[in-house]
Design a protein around this nucleic acid. Structure first.
Lengths: 141, 141
DNA sequence: TCTAAACTTGACCATTTTGGTCAGGTATGT
DNA sequence: ACATACCTGACCAAAATGGTCAAGTTTAGA
């Protein structure tokens, strides 16, 4: 059970962005340098963040990215959703008429995995970008 | 972020085992049939569970596996640990002298991932095999 | 004592996912 | 016009996943 780097990088980059974008648009190049994430990879990630209206892009010289919402309104849930970081505990397809094993009924531990998913998602829903900013005031990179 | 099938299968198999082992040792073949998990794969999993003293094996005809502890004392944590299902949110090595990015300091979101790990592990520590047995009394497979 | 049931071990492998790179664009401020 | 920065999509190596296969060893019971 692990977090993919896409999810991690997305959050790191957004925290970085949030710290600077009230002055100027922030270029991916800067984020790349500060956070040690490959520029090409960042572009993939920001393309998705933009589609999900988490950031806005400003093209041209001196361009870059800006947050599209208040940091308080950007939850981890939104970020992860944007970059396809899903919490996936069960194989069982929900749409499927059949049960989890190809049998008629729900698999023996189905309720457990559902609970776990909810438990994790709750964490993500209650955490906003703003929380992370405050959290890092003292221990800046 | 997803659960591996090894972890899921381990829990499913143990719940199955716990339901029957007070009568006789339970053969992997039976579990395989009931839960729809490949026998060969189950053998890999039970080998690990045995090393971690979660189950005992009884060889020979009419043999099989038995729980080695009270269901109440087998936490999900123990099971996952046995089959190497780890909760891994951070790349950063804890032993490393250096920081997370190869830089000197902790990465910008380090605290967040630590929190998340704790959040998930807490869930696993508070859940025992016994909880799952009760949970399934009504919705048996 | 023979044999079948069941555990034991370890090698092997195809597929998928991950974590990117590379090579081209296109838009825009100066 | 040109440098800066966004944009897009193809491509790829390596690792993890989710197993299978083969060849044992042990023991209960006929």
């Amino acid at each position: 059970m692990k977090l993919t780097s896409k999810g991690r990088y997305a959050v790191m980059a957004l925290v970085d962005l949030a710290r600077f974008d009230n002055i100027n648009p922030v270029s991916l190049r800067d984020i790349s340098l500060r956070q040690g994430i490959s520029l090409d990879y960042l572009e993939q990630i920001f393309s998705k963040l933009k589609k999900n209206e988490i950031v806005k892009s400003i093209r041209g010289t001196q361009g870059g990215y800006v947050l599209n919402k208040n940091p308080n309104d950007i939850k981890l849930t939104n970020i992860f959703h944007a970059v396809d970081e899903k919490v996936k505990t069960v194989q069982c397809k929900k749409e499927s008429k059949k049960g989890c094993n190809g049998k008629a009924t729900k698999c023996i531990t189905h309720n457990l995995w559902d609970e776990l998913e909810i438990h994790i998602n709750t964490f993500f829903e209650n955490k906003s970008l703003k929380d992370l900013l405050n959290n890092n005031k003292d221990t800046r990179v």
